[in-house]
């Protein structure tokens, strides 16, 4: 027996999901961060964030189609992390490093937090 491994499949699927997001196709939730609104797919949010996993697996909150985040969350930091979820690329802007890391802590995205922390420490050094 043998099998063919399509090495690009995961990134091809993610690119298509991001195309669906940018065209607002089958998005099923609006995330409200201060006065900004972000449309997304619950499944992608749950797959990437511990906080969204907890929210959308909750029997009562799971069916909500709009979620307001804590006002302390920075909309630009959230936007960077939402793009990361759909592209695997984390934009690091000097003036937003801490906001990005704090948003990742809030969203319970530990691996991103660790990576941001290491990046901040190395750039300080």
């Amino acid at each position: 027996d043998s099998c063919i491994q399509f090495t690009r499949h995961a990134s091809d699927v993610l690119l298509n999901l991001n195309r669906l997001r940018s065209r607002d196709i089958l998005t099923d939730v609006t995330i409200l961060v201060s006065r900004q609104q972000f449309r997304a797919h619950k499944t992608v949010l749950m797959a990437c964030s511990g906080l969204f996993y907890t929210i959308f697996t909750d029997a009562h909150k799971g069916n909500l189609n709009a979620i307001s985040l804590d006002p302390k969350v920075d909309p630009e930091g959230f936007s960077i992390l939402l793009d990361f979820m759909y592209t695997s690329r984390l934009t690091l802007r000097d003036n937003l490093l801490l906001a990005t890391m704090n948003t990742a802590i809030y969203l319970q995205m530990e691996h991103v937090v660790d990576t941001c922390h290491r990046f901040i420490k190395s750039s300080d050094a």
Binding site: D12, L20, R23
Partner: peptide, 21 residues
């Protein structure tokens, strides 16, 4: 234990959804 030999396909695996129709 059955050895399965895996062939790596580096090319695109699925259709690409256009930015708009």
């Amino acid at each position: 234990y059955e050895a399965v030999n895996t062939i790596q396909e580096l090319g695109r695996s699925i259709h690409e959804i256009p930015r708009q129709d």
